[in-house]
Design a binder for these strands. Structure first.
Lengths: 347, 347
DNA sequence: TTGTAGGCGTTATCAT
DNA sequence: ATGATAACGCCTACAA
């Protein structure tokens, strides 16, 4: 006459009964075998196998007020840049018992806020977010949450908790300086998907051009569209149509750079002699293209790996000393900017 | 004297007390407002807002024996192909209350099995897996699980439950037939990351060549390495070194095809006149490259969208009539195979 | 339309 | 080293 709800599931109690011990002993045998005598552990493991017991994460979460979920929020599931970061994250997480809960903010602060809210309600073990441009509300959530937080992809002076990334501004400045050093004179910038990181790259570009006395806002072209190779071709052609004297371009990312190269090829513009191209991110294909394309190498997979390591270390108590890691970048000079010396460089 | 474990969390009961109703009424007001009087709903919503109540998914899962988690297992988090599928999935899921739990099987059946085990222990609302090549154990898990299952990326005669994809074999056969029709005579195949889908593409290629009386296993080259543009260049060069008479290549994917194109450019081999190149997937860049590259368009985002729709519909009761959807493919002919007519075609 | 009783499966707390 | 008991927060079942 009881209201048994039965779920068909094998529970701790089933294992306990079969093994002739109490449920809590089974629980301990599974989580901290050190607290239980060897023989009992062995017997329990046997029964677990026989019965096919699998712990219920919901019950565990409810009772312990903790989960093994690491929440990760990225702005795009399609962008190569974030796939690389994800690869690093999964590489590390797969060696542990943590699970990744992936949220896609689609470059929206509001969306990010909602995702954080959802994640936090799950009592995550840790959180990982992209960049440093959270809304005030999101920032507040992150500061209040009872778990470690890592911000990835950027560096900044004021981490919520921990941080691993690099300076997009410095990286773009270095790339622009490379073009200047190579003797290009009218160096443009094309940028798509103007997120905060792209904006900072644009700033870095401007700094370099200003420092060289070559800044000219007519040489910049940006759009909110998501970046594609086709878009890179189109933007380059438009920019060059308006400014035929343009002789090089710094692209916000490698898709645009590849598109710029293709556009030049179609127009019969010789790269690098007549026109220099520099990408950003250094995707694998930059080295393979013909001509190969100069790009700024960033350490995306490493960001995922390090971020995950820092998070797990913090979760498990051993807060690492380094809470704000700058992974840097490298300008990889290739054929697309290897112009014969013919000026510039002096200074 | 009590052993209160206090978690600081705002609970249903807190809201109920504040609103002067019972907890279950709050629960209902939130989930099925239709069952509760308008004024009470309003009052409760007010209190929920004031107190900042957020439901606890663990408690909900434990009590109801259900979750709103949709488990998705893909073989790679980096591969563009799957990013596109994920975009489709997220596009749909974001309009609902379901959450995605993403698992990365890294092209391993064993890994897939483990992930399924983990997912199933969470009582998912639905499951989505890639392809039709699960291990027997994995297949068994999927058949036993108490939720709808969709297999994506392929079609086949024997779905676990539902299925949405296309025939990789037919698609590759069509691509090879295109090359034959364009008059190429020595058509090779290069394939990396030999997963089951790649293997089926190879079969399709073979069928077409056999049917044309042109099959020659020396024209095939495959590797287990993950595919990259650089690898495409390398594989093409190796293949052509061994078989200088090679005059076209069908590539297992677009990265390889792009690499093949770059290799030809470096070697001064004219595409398409001296050499034809066909890719697979039709990534956006295929249309932008110079020359543009013929490829097989597949409907990846659509697979994610449809798969998610089918899953949610099944979860919510309205099993759709179509449980096995073939999304097809299209060979998109471009410059890289637009050889001047000069033979072939006849038959 | 609203409420009462109890259980979902696990772990924290206290005791032995 | 092991166990008894209650609690985690919500929902199902039944009742009113």
């Amino acid at each position: 006459m009881k209201k048994r709800r039965k779920s068909g599931r094998v529970t701790l109690s089933d294992v306990a009964r079969e093994a002739g011990v109490s449920p809590i002993t089974v629980s301990r045998a599974l989580r901290s075998p050190g607290m239980v005598s060897k023989e009992v552990v062995k017997r329990i493991e046997q029964v677990v196998g026989d019965l096919g017991y699998v712990p219920d994460p919901a019950a565990r979460a409810l009772a312990s007020q903790r989960t093994d979920v690491i929440g990760v929020i990225i702005p795009s599931v399609t962008n190569n840049v974030f796939s690389d970061v994800m690869r690093g994250i999964y590489a590390r997480v797969e060696e542990t018992n943590y699970r990744i809960q992936l949220g896609n903010s689609r470059y929206s602060q509001k969306e990010e806020e909602k995702l954080l809210q959802t994640f936090v309600s799950q009592r995550p073990a840790g959180l990982m977010v992209s960049g440093i441009d959270q809304s005030d509300e999101a920032r507040q959530i992150l500061e209040d949450v009872a778990c470690p937080v890592v911000q990835i992809m950027e560096t900044g002076p004021d981490p919520v908790d921990m941080m691993v990334g690099f300076s997009h501004r410095d990286a773009a400045r270095a790339a622009a300086e490379h073009l200047i050093a190579k003797g290009y004179e009218r160096i443009g910038f094309i940028g798509a998907r103007m997120d905060p990181r792209t904006a900072r790259r644009l700033e870095g570009y401007r700094e370099a051009l200003r420092a060289a006395g070559r800044y000219d806002e007519g040489l910049e072209r940006t759009t909110a569209q998501r970046s594609t190779v086709t878009l890179g071709s189109g933007m380059l052609l438009e920019l060059k149509a308006g400014r035929p004297d343009l002789d090089a371009v710094l692209c916000n990312n490698d898709d645009l750079a590849l598109g710029a190269l293709f556009a030049c090829q179609r127009q019969g513009i010789s790269v690098p002699d007549e026109f220099g191209i520099c990408g950003f991110n250094d995707l694998e294909m930059m080295a393979a293209s013909c001509p190969s394309i100069t790009s700024v190498r960033t350490y995306r997979e490493e960001m995922g790996v390090r971020g995950t390591d820092m998070l797990i270390q913090a979760i498990e108590g051993g807060r690492s000393a380094e809470a704000n890691v700058d992974l840097g970048f490298d300008v990889i000079a290739r054929e697309s900017t290897a112009r014969r010396e013919q000026g510039g460089e002096k200074g």
